[in-house]
Amino acid sequence: MDSGTTPTTPKRVLCIEDEHFISELYARALTKAGYQVDVQLDGQKGLAVAQTDVYDIILLDLMIPNITGIEVLRTLRDPRQTPKMHAKIIITTNLEQREDVRADIEQQADGYLVKAEITPRELVEFLSHLDA
């Protein structure tokens, strides 16, 4: 939650993304920018890690194995199921939604990015503006 006022502790990012090459690219760019990145390729495991570990930012794909990203988002946003949730949740997806569904998701998340429309550098830039 501390918005980069203590540069000595790097911000932790959890990337829940089953496309290995994409998570690799994102992790590479984010690590270079000073973030500490964990990657989870599986939705169920990603959710478990997000609930137990403390992250500043969670990048969440919507089409992930074993559980949908929407389900993960809902669980993380439900205070009964995830009582301590401090991370900003950014949806990173290439999946096209009905507009109203997207609006619903956007309301629950802190950001919604279409992966094909941004490069890893643009992602880093987006994250740097998150709590500014």
Binding site: E19, F21, I22, L25, Y26, R28, A29, M63, N94, L95, E96, V114, K115, A116, I118, T119, P120, R121
Partner: peptide, 16 residues
């Protein structure tokens, strides 16, 4: 979705 996934990678690698 299928078109965008390789595109994401393409754009990512080009940037790198």
């Amino acid at each position: 979705h299928e078109l965008r996934t390789p595109l994401t990678l393409l754009r990512g690698y080009i940037e790198v």
